[in-house]
């Protein structure tokens, strides 16, 4: 039982990070139909921003804020420079554009910063381990879980209590009709990117805090996982993305804990097999929305 509880906490912490990333993908996809594979680079940008802010002597909390701000600005710039010109184009065009953005950013990181990982000095107070009865919980894990919950709660409040949030939910349902309400398409899309940037920034922060370094390819694997999570949940469904993120986290942690050692190298393959099994029974994902007919 204790081991199970321990694994549950591990799964919550890993799944939470996936959930934040998947949510960032889903927020943008639900509105403009773009799967943004450059989402991972927003994590990387955050990592570098925090890293350099610390090197320049900013205290850790300020460095974190700088990192998140940079992530939001980077997401807005991505939208303005790369995605707005192709808005309304086919899904394939959007997808290829996002691959291009991702590739360009990775090359820039490699050539302008470094191809190797750069260490990020995380305060010692964050690397402690909390012991509650039989459970051992890393501070960073605990912070991950709390930050994820706060973000999910905050986003939920934003979507349901503010006019901009309502507009985003409406846009996800029927963008053309939202424009008939006199709301500017560009600001709704920009808001979606800003939120996805913030989510990627927070995920990037948690990722860097756990690993203690940042490298140009840092975002590649997590964004792939987030994509899988979003697919499990049903692309475009925000609650689905969260559910998918946690589910994938659980699957990975459980496999890691209970697979025989000889099979551990195949952990991801088993995880993907389980995902395929989920999709065989629910091809539209766990919580997919019905797609309305759009103009």
């Amino acid at each position: 039982m204790d081991i199970f509880l321990q694994q549950l906490l591990n799964a919550l912490s890993l799944g939470g990070t996936y959930a934040l990333l998947a949510l960032g993908l889903a927020v943008v996809f639900s509105i403009i139909g773009l799967i943004n594979f450059a989402h991972g680079e927003l994590m990387t940008v955050t990592g570098y921003a925090i890293c350099f802010a610390l090197i320049w002597g900013l205290p850790f909390p300020l460095a974190v804020m700088a990192g998140l701000a940079v992530a939001v600005v980077a997401a807005l710039l991505m939208e303005r420079i790369a995605f707005r010109p192709v808005r309304g184009a086919s899904g394939t065009t959007l997808l290829l554009t996002s691959f291009a953005v991702s590739a360009i950013l990775r090359v820039l990181f490699q050539n302008l910063i470094s191809a190797r990982p750069i260490p990020v000095s995380i305060p010692a107070s964050l690397s402690g381990v909390l012991t509650i009865g039989p459970l051992h919980l890393g501070m960073i894990q605990l912070i991950s879980i709390i930050v994820t919950l706060v973000m999910l709660l905050g986003l939920n409040l934003f979507l349901h209590r503010t006019m901009a949030g309502r507009a985003m939910r409406a846009a996800a349902e029927d963008f053309a009709v939202l424009r008939l309400m006199g709301l500017r398409a560009n600001s709704v899309v920009a808001t979606a990117f800003a939120i996805s940037g913030l989510l990627a920034g927070v995920a990037g922060l948690l990722w860097v805090a756990q690993r203690g370094s940042v490298d140009p390819l840092m975002g590649a694997l997590p964004v792939l996982k987030a994509f899988i999570a979003a697919i499990i949940g049903g692309l475009g469904s925000l609650s689905g993305a969260v559910a998918g993120g946690f589910l994938l986290g659980f699957i990975e942690v459980i496999l890691q804990a209970y697979l025989p050692e000889s099979l551990l190298p195949y952990r991801d393959a088993f995880a993907i097999l389980l995902v395929i099994a989920v999709l065989l029974f629910r091809p539209q994902g766990l919580l997919a929305r019905k797609t309305p007919v759009k103009l």
């Binding site: 939910r169 409406a170 349902e173 029927d174 009709v177 939202l178 008939l180 006199g182 309305p292 007919v293």
Partner: peptide, 13 residues
């Protein structure tokens, strides 16, 4: 403004 064909209310709102 236009009331579009098929009503198209935001059904989840």
């Amino acid at each position: 403004t236009l009331v579009p064909e098929g009503r198209r209310v935001f059904s989840s709102l």
